[in-house]
Structures are given as C-alpha cells and as structure tokens.
Nucleic acid binder design. Structure first.
Lengths: 259, 259
DNA sequence: GCTCGTTGTGCGCAATGCGTACAGTTGTAC
DNA sequence: GTACAACTGTACGCATTGCGCACAACGAGC
C-alpha cells in the first residue's frame, strides 16, 4: 500500500483493527484469531485485547473476547450531533408515516453505502439493516443515486473499482449496463432498484442536495404491486423530493453558524 | 486512578479518547482543543488526528476536524451480530406495532442506560434518542428496572455513586426515596417513570431475563392519558412481558451453540 | 510596528510496545 | 498410560515508536 508519513501512529490503526476484527461473522475471537486477522504477533494482539477489556469495550469470556455495548459510544456522538442523521430523523419519520413504508438515509463511503439513519415501519418486517451497516453501492437505489451524481472522474473511478456480482437473477449484468443505468438515474433524478441485491428488496431513492453539495440519498421501500404503476412517480416521488428538500434546508440552516 | 498493568497499550486508550472527544457538544475540534480535552501534548494530538484522518474516521475542515460517518463501522458489527439488539429487533417491532408506541431496549453500563435498539413510531414525534445514547439510569424506567434487579452489593454501589439532579419538578427527590422506589420496582417487576427526566417523557419498562441472567430492559412510551389507568397493567404489561420472554428465548436458542 | 494566540514541523531521546522464548493446559490419537 | 499438537499466559531484553521540546510562520488585534 501507500507508505505512511512519519506522523503516523501505528497503534491507532491497530486499535481500530482489533475492534473491527469483531465483524458480523466473528462475535467471539481468541487471541490467536485476532492476531491472524490483523497480522500482528500473538503477544501484541493480547496486549491490545487486554487493554480494550480494561477500557470496557471488550469483555473476556473464557479465552474468547467479545464486544460490549460500549462500542456504540464511539459512533453515538456522530449520530446525535448536529449531523445529517440527527437533522434528518424527524423528516424521515414523517415521510415514513405518510407512505407507511420504511425510510432510510445513506451516504457514500468508498464502494459502499453506509446507513446513517433508518425509520422502519413496524408493521412490515423488512430486511434487517441497521444503522452503520454497509451495502454495495452499485446494487442499491441509494448507491446509484449517489454515484450517478458524482463528478465524472470520481464516477469512473468508482466503476473501475466496482466488483459486480450476480446476487439475484435480476442483478444488472455488467459495467456497460450499469453505466447506462447511472446515466438514466442522473437524468431523471431518482433510482428504482428492484430485487437486484435480494429477492425481497425494492427501493426507490432520491438525492439530498444542499445547493451544489450532495449530502446523501434517501430511500423508501416499495411494495411489489407498485412497481411500474404511476403511484411511484405521481405519489411517492413528490413526497420524497419534498422531504429531501426539507432535510437540506434544515441541515443548512442549523449548521450555517459553524463555518 | 488505578495503576495500569504492564500489558497496557497507552496508545489504544488515546486513540479512543481522541474519537470520544468529539461528543454531542463538540462536533468540530482543532488540534489544541483535542490536546486539552484528553490531556496530551499538542504534537501528540496532531499525530493521532492525522492518523485518524488517514484511516478515514475523521476529516479535516480548515484546521478543525470532525468525525466521518465511518465511525459507525465500529459499533455496526455489534449491532448486526448475533447480539441482543439484533435478536430483539423483530420482537420490538411487533410490540411497537401492537401498541402503536415507541419501544426500546437498553442495557446498564455503569451509571447509565445505553440504548442498543429502538423502534420509533413515526406517527409520534418522540424524544430524539438514538442507538448508543446514554441516559442516567436512576431517572429512567429501564434504568430502575435494571438497577432494581441487581445483586444487593452492586445496587448499593450504584446508589452510592448516583448523582441525583432535579431535572423536572417530578424528579425523585433523594436517595432514600429512590431506594424505596427500587424496592417497589423489584417486587412488582416493572417500572413506570413519568416526567422525571423530561416533561414529555413517560416510560414503562420490564426486565428481560434469560433464566437467571439479566439481559437488559425493554420499555414502551406511554401516553399521558393512560397513566393511572388499568390499561397499563392489564393491556401493556402482559404484551411487554411476552415480548421480553420471546426475546430471551430467541437469544438463548440462537446463541446456545457458542459456549 | 509589537504581542498574543494560533498553526505546522524537525529532531534527539527514552519510554513504549515488540516478539522471541519458555512454561502450563487441554484434547486427541495410539 | 505416553506422545504430540495446538492452544494458552508470561517474562524480558532490545529497538522501534512515539514523545515533546523548540523553532518558524501566520493572522488578529490593538
């Protein structure tokens, strides 16, 4: 990789690496497993694990370690600060109520979309996505909106690094098709993705713009029966665009003082 | 404080301290501010900040730094793993739908309750609490349930360290009164707290037990009109207890293999 | 102009964290 | 039972890493 400048604190990277080693597939890890996962010696891994236990972010369970709820502290300040998710929450809730659907707000992080807020409709048991989760941007409605609105160079770089996969039979089949779809999305200002990532997943997304700055994308889930009907463009889209505008105005107004 | 054992990695503590310096009241911090906040030299603070920028958890904005959405990654694995929040989510959603109220699940962390999952009712604009947030345990329904169920020694230690404050005119007025209330909560197995932390906040909570192990507490918001009426004990409590039981069974069943 | 409060950066020093090495424990095969 | 393998935890000497002083540069406010 790129060589690190001399101000680099390697231990900081390792600390985060240890915490991130506990991903969705690895709830409990032993010293040896962590050492292998992040490529450090067993002794080093043990030092970090014991330190993190001491700080309360991990707990020991026999010779395995697991995260404690305290790890949520790290992201909590972002979620409750004067940030996009905090500002967007009431607007998303209102939209969710008006449409009786699940709504979410995402930002782009490299090749993924990152859920920063989500209001689920309790009456519908939708996909189990929670805040902080990632999904491949190219296969989701929000991701396509975010990538479509990117400057040309960034968009091309995204496409070059994109690793397409056939999640379902309806998944877009290649870079060329995806590029064409992105053109369409950019021209029309919204994206509808149905069952390309998961058989049960259908989403409609629009960008959230504050002036020339792209803040994120918001989406709502879409019932199968609505696909192709006029209710999408005539009913859902206007409400979504109004919500996006409300979020942008509110975000700008409340954070204007900070610059 | 307590002296650190010789396995301690000081840089790990500092790394987390830097990330946590960006709390709800401090969105953007300069090098000097961070150095003061966590009591390290300015040069050290700068090294950590630049490293975290390099890793993508912070971004520079002029000479100030702020968190990026990527900080959510650290807690995301906890939220989507085979952990309590993940298991509880569908059950909370069902309860929220049945009662048309906001539901939440908390665990106890020192003196605070820590929100690990929350299903809000979009039709009600309730208090803006999000996952990872903390509230003082003694002033909340979930906190009182969790503390009441603690072993005697731990409960007394909690009370000794509790720092009561009069948030509203209805806040419990002293340790003695709080201790008595905890006795009642333990005896009846639920807690109702109305407007003691905030004028608009009324919560009803029950413990979530898996055998002898206290996993957490769940609560639902309560409409003002219902306070004192029979609908709480006759309608809400049975549903909440059933949900608590469902969560505990589901949690135990799915995680049994890991021991 | 001067001063105060910032900022970024270089560099020598030592404290910090490294990894090797050894010892104890557990489980399986024979 | 022994032997072996794959874990564990712990100690200690070494050098890498991160420390903070010191300097330079910039801007704001008289």
């Amino acid at each position: 990789m790129a060589e690190q400048p001399d101000y680099y604190v390697k231990s900081a990277e390792k600390t985060l690496a240890v915490l991130l080693a506990f991903d969705a597939g690895h709830q409990a890890l032993t010293v040896t497993q962590v050492a292998e996962a992040i490529s450090v010696s067993r002794a080093a891994a043990r030092r970090f694990l014991l330190t993190l236990v001491d700080l309360g972010y991990l707990e020991a369970e026999g010779n395995a370690y697991r995260q404690t709820p305290r790890v949520l502290d790290i992201g909590a300040s972002y979620l409750s600060g004067l940030t996009l998710p905090q500002v967007a929450r009431p607007h998303l809730a209102q939209l969710a109520a008006e449409l009786s659907e699940t709504t979410a707000l995402c930002v782009l992080d490299d090749q993924d979309i990152l859920y920063v807020e989500r209001i689920s409709n309790p009456r519908l048991h939708s996909m189990n996505v929670s805040i902080g989760n990632r999904l491949p941007a190219w296969a989701t409605s929000m991701g396509r909106v975010l990538v479509a609105e990117l400057p040309e160079a960034a968009r091309e770089e995204f496409l070059n690094n994109a690793r397409l996969r056939n999640y379902t039979s309806k998944t877009v089949s290649g870079i060329a098709e995806l590029r064409a779809e992105l053109e369409t999305v950019r021209a029309q200002g919204w994206s509808l993705v149905a069952q390309e990532l998961d058989e049960g997943l259908r989403g409609l997304a629009v960008p959230v713009y504050r002036g020339a700055q792209l803040l994120g994308a918001l989406n709502v889930s879409v019932q199968p029966g609505r696909i192709g009907s006029a209710s999408i463009t005539e009913e859902m889209l206007p409400l979504m665009r109004r919500t996006a505008q409300d979020i942008a105005d509110d975000f700008g107004g409340r954070t204007a003082a900070r610059n």
